[in-house]
Design a protein around this nucleic acid. Structure first.
Lengths: 233, 233
DNA sequence: ACCTGAACACCGTTCAAGT
DNA sequence: ACCTGAACACCGTTCAAGT
């Protein structure tokens, strides 16, 4: 089918001033909105401009190129994920394993609720990871949280011993892989009914974590467990 | 920076006939080649046509649209992965757990060696999964192989009990996630040195599988293990 | 029966010109 | 200081015309 021409921006009844005022932030916000409402693969700069009623060249006064705008969007997305993780972990039990599960659940839920943001932050070719300090901070917070929980779980004999870095990477890969498989539309081929995709993903994750916990508990009944700090805030 | 114009096809010295002869297959082969040599996100129909020295419209005599050509490429890619899996499993030991590890390794290696093919077959939006019977067969063979190995490992008390489907999904998500994280360029943020990315991924996978094995062995020392067939050829 | 090449609507990006 | 709008090189797709 031929491309259907997109209608020009509504340009509402109120006459838009020549200068937008806060176009930079508006571009980021609109890009996030566009990402969230349509499950499309990627965000087009022209569409964002069109929605804001500005010309196709306007965004390039504020961002040198598409990648740069995407970096700002990725910054926003990474912040939002971080905030969700922090919030959900506040309400989670103190047991490291339970917290790891909660973290995984939060990640999966966020990915499924914001597939285009999720895809963007996952693809390093779409934005410039290193150019944003805050983006790095948000990412590091989530990664370090994972890593610390893994270490705590290992100390509490709830996860097998071994390099915590690699174990954390594996667990992240597990929840990332599960999320991505559903976002990419692979789950039907794994006989997962559309209705309970979310539950199936979480069930699969729990299966692994519970399986890992089994082994350590069996080998280490309780003696050489390090003294747990009663409650670390 | 402005787009640098691509030079027209070389059109070699030998005069190309008006009719190509076997353009359909040539398009698929060239698309695979393009995918393999450049690590780009997606394959452009125009570039494939350009390489073959045919006009931009020519491909659409053989494929109704881009998606349809991509389906043929995905078919080829899925076949190749299947063949690798089958070959590598022939040389693998008969122990289910060892075979599962070998399968994971094959998957990861293939993904890293053919990132664009890997990305293509992973994204259901880029091709039409259901329109190709052979594609479905190839995919099912790999999935069923995984599933059967999981069941065998569970029977041999090398994997924890629980729904084999979900466990197989989780293990696939693990190797898919690991592969995808490196293909998407995420590994640097997980402090994995460029040099040993492959080994780190495999190490991470093994950490999980070994961890899962620990739990079951502890609970089921050895008695009810089924008699192993001495050597199945 | 198959291929060309111009056309169209997209896209990112640039830049002289406008406010 | 910020935005427009035409321009350019891409892209997928169509289609009359050529062989």
């Amino acid at each position: 089918m031929p491309n259907t021409p997109l209608k020009a921006a509504p340009r509402s009844s109120v006459k838009r001033p020549y200068h937008h005022g806060n176009l930079r932030q508006a571009l980021i916000d609109t890009a996030v909105t566009v990402a969230d409402e349509s499950g499309k693969d990627l965000i087009s700069v022209r569409e964002v401009a069109r929605r804001l009623g500005v010309s196709s060249g306007a965004p390039f006064r504020h961002f040198p190129n598409r990648k740069s705008l995407m970096t700002a969007v990725a910054e926003e997305a990474t912040l939002r994920l971080r905030l969700r993780v922090e919030r959900d972990l506040r309400d989670a039990p103190e047991d490291p394993m339970a917290r790891l599960k909660a973290l995984g659940r939060t990640f999966i839920e966020w990915a499924l609720n914001h597939p285009t943001q999720f895809r963007l932050v996952s693809a390093r070719s779409l934005f410039d990871f290193n150019s944003s300090a805050s983006l790095n901070v948000h990412f590091d917070v989530v990664r370090d949280t994972t890593l610390n929980l893994v270490k705590q779980a290992q100390e509490a004999a709830q996860l097998p011993p071994g390099c915590a870095q690699h174990l954390a990477l594996a667990l992240r890969a597990l929840v990332y892989g599960l999320s991505r498989m559903q976002v990419d539309g692979q789950l039907p081929q794994w006989r997962v009914a559309d209705a309970q995709q979310r539950q199936s993903l979480i069930l699969s994750m729990d299966l692994i974590l519970d399986g890992l916990a089994l082994g350590t508990q069996a080998r280490q009944p309780s003696p050489r467990i390090k003294p747990l700090s009663p409650r670390q805030t």
